[in-house]
């Protein structure tokens, strides 16, 4: 679905994406990384919004650099940017309908049905005729999400889709995304990656530092996580858990009680190694 080879994109002197190669097939692919790592730039390129400076990119088997193929990609794509602006004077129905028109849903009756379907999917039927300016941030995010889901796209490119959603809506989002053919999404929420993603890509400073399954990422910290009732100054990271014990990451001392690593542990270890070079 998405094939990237040595993708590079710079803004002035800053290389936001620096030689990224990745292959993303069907399923949900999660992009993890700190703020400014290049996730949004990568997603914008995958969504045909931004052209790479160098490298080769194919989306849905098509080349976004060619205008005719870019148009075809856009017909089969749903995109949710990190800060999706909406028209405050529109209702959710009006907004989604307008985007449907721009997505070439020309048959009025079919379009109306599709608009109602996606609004129902994000559970906004009860407020679909209220002005967007009167809706909460979470509901606005769901309006934007509904626009991305119009027409059951083959590929969903979502930049932090769970932003502002309450726990109930996050679960709903998981259910929706698990039904989509291919989803490429960025997130800071590791529990989302654990629950949803078939593949996880970790990006630091514009470069891919890890690509594999969530279990592989957690596995990076295998044998390097232990728990104790005291803080350990030798550990790379230590934090107090809800159970009242300390969880440590690093090289465990002799006799330490090593525990199974989680995705957080794998990510934190990778981040630490990246930070210390």
């Amino acid at each position: 679905m998405i094939e990237a080879v040595e993708l590079t994109k710079a803004f002035g002197r800053t290389r936001a994406v620096d030689g990224v190669s990745l292959s993303a097939g069907p399923g949900v692919i999660g992009l993890l990384g700190p703020n400014g790592a290049g996730k949004t730039t990568l997603l914008r390129m995958a969504a045909t919004v931004l052209a790479p400076d160098a490298g080769r990119l194919r989306v849905l088997g098509l080349d976004p650099a060619r205008p005719d193929e870019r148009l075809e990609i856009r017909r089969r794509l749903g995109y949710l940017p990190q800060s999706p602006g909406l028209y405050p004077g529109f209702t959710p129905y009006d907004m989604v309908d307008y985007v449907a028109i721009l997505k070439e849903h020309s048959d009025r009756r079919a379009r109306q049905q599709e608009v109602r379907r996606v609004l129902a999917a994000v559970e906004l039927e009860d407020v679909m005729h209220r002005k967007i300016r009167s809706l909460s941030g979470g509901k606005r995010q769901r309006v934007a999400l509904a626009t991305a889901m119009l027409g059951n796209p083959d590929l969903l490119v979502l930049d932090e889709p769970a932003n502002g959603l309450d726990p109930d809506q996050r679960l709903r989002l998981r259910s929706l995304l698990s039904q989509a053919p291919t989803v490429l999404m960025s997130t800071h929420n590791i529990s989302e990656v654990t629950a949803l993603c078939h593949q996880v890509v970790v990006v630091f400073d514009g470069r891919v530092r890890f690509a594999g399954t969530p279990a592989d990422l957690a596995g990076l910290a295998a044998g390097r996580v232990w728990e104790d009732d005291r803080q350990d100054p030798e550990a790379i990271r230590s934090w107090l858990t809800a159970a009242g014990s300390y969880r440590h990451l690093g090289d465990p001392p002799t006799g330490a009680s090593v525990v199974d690593p989680t995705l957080d542990d794998g990510y934190l270890l990778l981040a630490r190694e990246e930070h210390t070079g």
């Binding site: 969504a47 995109y79 985007v99 721009l102």
Partner: peptide, 11 residues
């Protein structure tokens, strides 16, 4: 204001 949301539509 909706330009980012509409950046990848066919129109």
């Amino acid at each position: 204001p909706a330009a980012p949301l509409l950046a990848a539509v066919p129109t």
